[in-house]
Design a protein around this nucleic acid. Structure first.
Lengths: 136, 136
DNA sequence: CTGTATCCCCGCTGATACTG
DNA sequence: CAGTATCAGCGGGGATACAG
């Protein structure tokens, strides 16, 4: 990014000239998904079996874990290795592309950490000024 | 910021030690929201009135525009200025914090652009190998 | 153990109508 | 112009049962 301005107020970034949907929605739909993020974060710690993953990601249903993993596999972010043992054994791991994604998620986490207090404070102020508005 | 790393085998980033939800979900829920992103991108071009905004963000309903703006305002990302004219006139603009967010969105867009081809290719391969799976 | 198949409910969203 | 109010439809996600 190119910075060239003074003050503490950073100029807005030019995100995408003219063309709104430049394919970023596909990624955002993943990054914005709760389960996807939690699963990727867990896999960032090492390869995991299905059951281990489900116990590690608190509250995820079998169905959603399967769906999430399939989508990540489809995107080439996660690899799936089946060992033809009895009982079956399946190892999930981040691919190189998946590891790239952990950096993206880290960037998001960092930004959240940097601004969480400011946002939380803003919300408290707004909620106080707009009681019973129903906005969340 | 430079999310990009060496090609091939980048080590996974340590996203959040032990504590899954470190408040990043609040941000992700916003960033993952289609309308939020589109509205912020439009506002990054300058301050906008309600109607102008609605015409600029293709397909957004009056209801969703209002909801999106209220949430952004609550988070301190967008400012709302009412001019007591007739007819009413309301200007929306990014706050300094909102302009920060455009940089975050740009980071996401950059990452998407960098990897969209790899992801698209992976999807094509997967879809071809798993016909009629229903995964999206 | 690792999934797939169904059912079903809740909440998000769009559409519509109305107001200051 | 800039909203608010209300309702109806659809789909995401949980719970459950079953299969390889």
């Amino acid at each position: 990014m190119s910075v060239g301005h003074t003050e503490g107020t950073a100029p807005p970034a030019v995100v995408c000239e003219e063309h709104e949907d430049c394919g970023i929605r596909d990624v955002l739909d993943r990054v914005g998904d709760t389960w996807t993020v939690l699963v990727v974060v867990e896999l960032a710690r090492g390869e995991r079996r299905f059951g281990v993953l489900q116990r590690a990601v608190d509250g995820i249903s079998q169905r959603m874990l399967t769906l999430t993993l399939r989508r990540l596999e489809r995107d080439g972010l996660v690899s799936r290795t089946v060992f033809p043992t009895i009982p079956p054994q399946v190892e999930y791991a981040l691919t190189p592309l998946g590891r790239e994604m952990t950096h993206l998620i880290k960037a998001l986490a960092d930004w959240s950490l940097d601004h969480r207090d400011a946002i939380a404070a803003s919300r408290r102020g707004w909620d106080e000024a707009h009681p019973g508005s129903g906005i969340r």
